[in-house]
Design a protein around this nucleic acid. Sequence first.
DNA 1: AATATCCTGTAACAATTTCTACAAACGCCG
DNA 2: CGGCGTTTGTAGAAATTGTTACAGGATATT
Lengths: 287, 287
Amino acid sequence: MGSKPLVRDLLKEKQAELTASERRLSAVLLEDSMVTGLQSITRLAEVAEVSTPTVIRLARKLGFDGYPDLQDAIRVELAERMKRPLAKLEAARDDARDHIVSRFVEAVSENINRTLDRLDLARFDTVAELLSDPARRLHLLGGRITRSNAHYFFNHLQIIRPHVLLMDSSPSVWPQSLLDMDDRSVLIVFDIRRYERELEKLARLAVGQGAEIVLFTDAWGSPIEKYAAHTFRAMVEVPSSWDSTLAINFVVEALVADIQSRSSGQSADRIAALENMLGASRIFRGN
Amino acid sequence: MGSKPLVRDLLKEKQAELTASERRLSAVLLEDSMVTGLQSITRLAEVAEVSTPTVIRLARKLGFDGYPDLQDAIRVELAERMKRPLAKLEAARDDARDHIVSRFVEAVSENINRTLDRLDLARFDTVAELLSDPARRLHLLGGRITRSNAHYFFNHLQIIRPHVLLMDSSPSVWPQSLLDMDDRSVLIVFDIRRYERELEKLARLAVGQGAEIVLFTDAWGSPIEKYAAHTFRAMVEVPSSWDSTLAINFVVEALVADIQSRSSGQSADRIAALENMLGASRIFRGN
DNA sequence: AATATCCTGTAACAATTTCTACAAACGCCG
DNA sequence: CGGCGTTTGTAGAAATTGTTACAGGATATT
């Protein structure tokens, strides 16, 4: 109910009945999601090169009481938008606040949140589409720690669609895979800190072959970034000697879900066929 | 250059040197990405249930000139965050709410929360201790989907301690591993729905050999539960055709952190040795 | 139990903000 | 060009905000 109209919409709606300088002001506000409107009226007026009364008059025209009233609305709106999706992980079951699990959940929740902050949805969609294209050949590769992530992604992709390959962990057999790459190939690389030189080398060569690179890395960014067409940065720090790849896995799982639904038509047959084979082999083994 | 530290990080960093009411205040700020800090000092103080001078004192402690200075920082930070991903998000705001990522994060958040609710910390500690015992031999095994989880766990355990084995995915070679199991063996199994009969069979045989079983499964519970000495149940449902193993991974990562710190004495040498070998092999490969 | 230290809020003060009244500037039409 | 309505800015009053000084109260220490 009472969902008060968004300030942005109000501005657009009333655009017609605004005067010249009011419009200049509204342009400034719209430009950066009205964050400028959280400053004092004086400063906002300065930025927009308008006088302070103009600001007040605009606020009134939009139906607000005065400038502070408008500010409140903007702030509420912003808070709504900032709301951290995972904010409510209840870290503190107070029986064990210091338990490793509690500290861990806090860090993980923060990691996923910040990863999401930085996640560009447009990029996500682009990549999902790219990886759904059955004409593409996908090669997956992980480092020492991230091999499991690569494996997870591979495992699912392989069920959903054809032409998915998990590259061997030993660099000595990479050249053979490289030979197969061309401009229809996509190389999906996982590389987090203690970045591995071999991975970078391979990435460079793959790009040379015409392959497109999708990179999953940490906040600091692997050197492979410069070759990558698409990069996902995830937060990995937790109270441990090890980095956490949960945030990376989160993105991967979301991608799997999206890719699956995009290619559900083709993959249904594929999965049915797979089920059949599994069933057959089970009978075969005489279980 | 001059990349000023984020207010959020400042708050976390100085958390230790904050007083009780300052911490109350900082909690309020962190809760909603500091949007509350854009109001007047009076209102912020009211929300946090502290006095206005406390707010100023906190601002100073963080290195700001005064409250307005802090506000400026918050605003800049917010504007920065609004800029990139939101330019696109703005156009299709309602889209974003329905975006797969948004739906996913909600489900994951719920999953981890509920998994934590059910997690018995005493059991967690027991298992951590069990898996830290260098006299034990650990065998890891995953199913079709959960093999990556087993692999992840294996990967880390193997670095931390000796006698860790990842069992082959093909049942035909399991008998050989079974032969090696006795009452000093621990079998770590991952089995979520579409429970696999082969896994159950192996579990039964392993118990017969005297091995202890640690099981990771979903909310409904794998048939292996009846053989398992310790069971972790995690929530796996997400808006996808696939189950999410993030909650399982969460428990695994927390275990890794705990086991690592328990055996840090012994594992330090092990890791150092490993680093050396990695370095050596890199030189050997002539990178 | 007494003392010292640190934490916290009250209250008065200073600075800044928002707002109003008024007048200058602009554009439009006869 | 002069009259008229509208738009815009200036300046000061009113209100609110941010800040400082100080004292009561809590906590730890001897």
